[in-house]
Design a protein around this nucleic acid. Structure first.
Lengths: 184, 184
DNA sequence: GACGAAAGTGAATATCATTAGTCTTGAAAG
DNA sequence: CTTTCAAGACTAATGATATTCACTTTCGTC
């Protein structure tokens, strides 16, 4: 059956993502991934030169989807403030919808972030921040907001907020408090 | 030589921590850990019933050290504001001093946070926040501050702040902005 | 001086990522 | 219609891994 390829880099990537999302990050073995694709493990190396490189592609896709989600969310926002809030909410919503993939994309050690994808993720937020609080120090403002949002969903996903209450409300409060603090 | 134990739970834990801190999180294999201790891998199972449980102990120790560092830092602070700032700085300083251990303690999937240790970590911060911004909503305030600090060091350690500038200054700015926002 | 439990070992298993070599397919060339 | 050939896949093997099991060694206690 070989010559008409049974598989390609994209189908492998997709299957990897669903496997990781479903069975957790450790659940991914090349043997099981290959089996799910109807091939054997060594065949994967024709498309990705190592498991690390495959995971790199997975994380890159996660970052891109996250960016797209944020961009889509800011469309129908009038003020810069509303735009930032909408993007922050979308960021969190995506992370909560894909907790394993999000966590891995930002926690994996051997895969440092792709510079270009990080920029694409950051620039929309930074732009809205400039409209809101001026362009001076906008990189610092961005880092603070990003840290707040990432930290919140990261702790939330990791089960570190164990004392009840509405995390939705607390997230809202934290983001608005930070934004308020930028202009006072 | 056996009967006078060559090793105990604590020495294993210590060696594990230094090995992880030195050689990275993936570098830890039970065989190499055992070799560093002068024993063989199966012997480790007399003290920890699995690698996961050993790592759990490692992460617990990390959280406790982090807590101690914060507690020590708040001593010589006059105002609640200064106390919070001192603790936030100490938190970041510890995380930057032990990046691998910190990252693992909060990123590891199979080990959700120990409830008691998390409380011990959070309560000092929450207490200072109550003195600063009132006891109403202090849990929400705490979550925001913790998210901001954890998110910042997490992104910083992960190499996600790639665009230069002073991260020290940006951290300071972010924390103070958030604290300002809580009271306005 | 024998006993027994604690501490450690060696050998074995199953799983994993990865490599090397080999077979199979089917499109293109003659 | 046959030959060629390279892409795509497979089998087999390697070394590392966590973990289990049965065995041996040690030394305090009766």
């Amino acid at each position: 059956m070989p010559y008409p390829a049974q598989v390609n880099a994209e189908t492998i990537l997709d299957r990897t993502r669903t496997l990781i999302a479903d069975e957790g990050s450790d659940g991914l073995s090349l043997a099981r991934l290959a089996e799910a694709l109807g091939i054997t493990a060594p065949s994967l190396y024709r498309y990705y030169k190592s498991k690390t490189e495959l995971l790199r592609a997975v994380h890159l896709t996660t970052q891109q989807q996250l960016t797209q989600t944020m961009l889509a969310a800011r469309q129908d926002s009038a003020t810069p403030y509303e735009r930032m809030l909408a993007m922050a909410r979308a960021y969190r919503a995506y992370a909560l919808a894909q907790p394993v993939l999000y966590r891995l994309a930002f926690a994996d050690v051997d895969v440092s972030g792709d510079a270009e994808a990080l920029l694409a993720l950051a620039l929309p937020l930074q732009s809205a921040l400039e409209d809101y609080a001026g362009s001076a120090d906008s990189l610092a403002h961005l880092r603070g907001l990003w840290a707040l949002v990432h930290g919140f969903v990261s702790l939330e996903i990791g089960g570190r907020f164990q004392r009840g209450g509405s995390l939705d409300a607390d997230f809202e409060r934290a983001v608005t408090a930070y934004l308020r603090g930028l202009t006072s």
